[in-house]
Design a protein around this nucleic acid. Structure first.
Length: 130
RNA sequence: CUACAAACCCGAGCUAUCGUUCCGAUUUUAUCGGGAAGGAAAGUCCGGACAGCGCAGAGCAACCCACCGGUUAAUAGCCGGCUUCCCGGUUUUAACCGGGAAAGAGAAAGUGCCACAGAAAAUAACUACCCACGAUGAAAAUCGGGGGAAAAGGUGAAAAUGUGGGGUAAAAGCUCACGGUCCUGAUUGGUAACAAACGGGAUGGGUAAACCUUGGGUGCUGUAAUGCCACAUAUAGGAUCCUCUGAGGGCUGCUCGCCCAAUUCCGCUUCAUGCGGGAAGGGUCCAGGGUAGGCAGCAAGAUCGUGCCAGUAAUGGCAUGGCCAGAUAAAUGAUAGUUUAGAAACAGAAUCCGGCUUAUGAGGUUUGUAGUUUU
RNA sequence: GCGAAAGUAGCUCAUUUGGUAGAGCACGACCUUGCCAAGGUCGGGGUGGCCGGUUCGAGCCCGGUCUUUCGCU
């Protein structure tokens, strides 16, 4: 449990191939203003969950705003990811997840932090069914 | 002192907890230590470094630049000066002082355009003026076609070098004097642009951010360039063209010129050579398959801080100290407290630099304008 | 990262050597009809994305800026 709040390179979703599959074949769950794409992974993966974050450049033209939102998403995921990990560990499953911000206004930390647990619960249930 | 405008400076610090990325050390995968966005990282408007293309030929085209000198790796930037124009002040028309602006070569090589108005917008005769001729008439005068003439004429953004004298039928730079503008010769000062005064000539409206002319300059493509390693595959399918009489490619958009470019066997014929076929190789297109990893480039540099010196300045030289982001779905963050007058603006590196332009909260400095108060 | 194009009426678009900006649809009024549609007549609506410059005069020429779209890798 020492790495509970970590979010380092191995836990990031990096492969271009996986990302392509995730957006073409994966399913999604959303709690406005965040939409989460998910896909089960083979069991030989190193970590339980690989996750990535993103914002559409169409909604936020300034790079500063996109960076801000991505950082908030990473931070709230980092603080709350134990919910998802424990849910998956119970079912012996692994998954890839991508969080996409679909709102049009810049959120603050407090609201996102309150919202993230419910999204992760939803995700855990949906992946368990899949 | 207040308000507004412009330019410049600055673009938060500290503590705790939880995290990210890079480097180093210890150790063996977790600890410890250190570094971690900007003045514009932006727009991509200029200029370079570096790399590749034949270390890149000639002409044309295209594009760019345009007072002079300096600065620099280089520029369309910057600094200093000249000229012209604008504003303000002093005062006697003009000159001087202060501030600002200039895409500032050529309109006297040529072409085009100049709406409306006006006689006419560039070879200026419509009205009025003058002359002689013809017709009518007693005459004054009127009419007609012809010539002279830019001194007068409502317009217009712009109307043919200004004033005065002479001159004439009436007039006119037609001529003279004093000026304006332009070209040119020599003199003096200045590196030069140019300025001063002198001689000769000209008197030609504007527009070159219209075509253009003159002078000068530019090879093209960009770090996803480029080099290397690893992995994978199809000793791979079809069509078509070519193998020195050469498909095709390259050198700059075009032309010229130049360069690169893949060969042998068999049969027939023959002086040379030509024809047919096979194989191999090269190119183009179609269809399909695989990979999408790593290293270098890549961060010590036209570098930053401080001091001295040279220069009016931009800038340069010397000394000394420092090492200051380096990712690849892409780090540099979150929360709480605290300091402060305030923490709130614009905004996120992706090969790297020099400039320009644009955005920018609070505070500070300087300048200008307006108002108030005191002297 | 590199490059290109566009911005004109509510919408879709014209506007050539620079000289008072137009069409179609839509909108409003009237005619027509028992009523509506179609048709006919008339009308309103524009600081030409924004700022500056050249010119006597800019939608048009030049510079800057903003927004949108597209292409290459």
């Amino acid at each position: 449990m020492s790495a509970t709040y970590s979010y380092n390179t191995t836990e990031k979703l990096k492969s271009r191939k996986l990302l392509d599959q995730l957006f073409t074949k994966g399913r999604s769950v959303s709690v406005f203003p965040v939409k989460a794409f998910y896909m089960p992974l083979l069991s030989d993966a190193e970590v339980i969950v690989q996750a990535g974050v993103g914002v559409s450049a169409r909604n936020f033209t300034k790079a500063v705003h996109r960076n801000r939102i991505k950082r908030l998403l990473r931070e709230t995921y980092r603080l709350n990811k134990a919910i998802l990990q424990e849910g998956l560990q119970a079912d012996q499953k692994k998954a890839a997840v991508f969080f996409l911000y679909i709102g049009k206004e810049i959120p603050d930390f407090v609201t996102l932090n309150e919202l993230m647990p419910s999204l992760l619960n939803k995700l855990a249930i949906a992946i368990a069914k899949a």
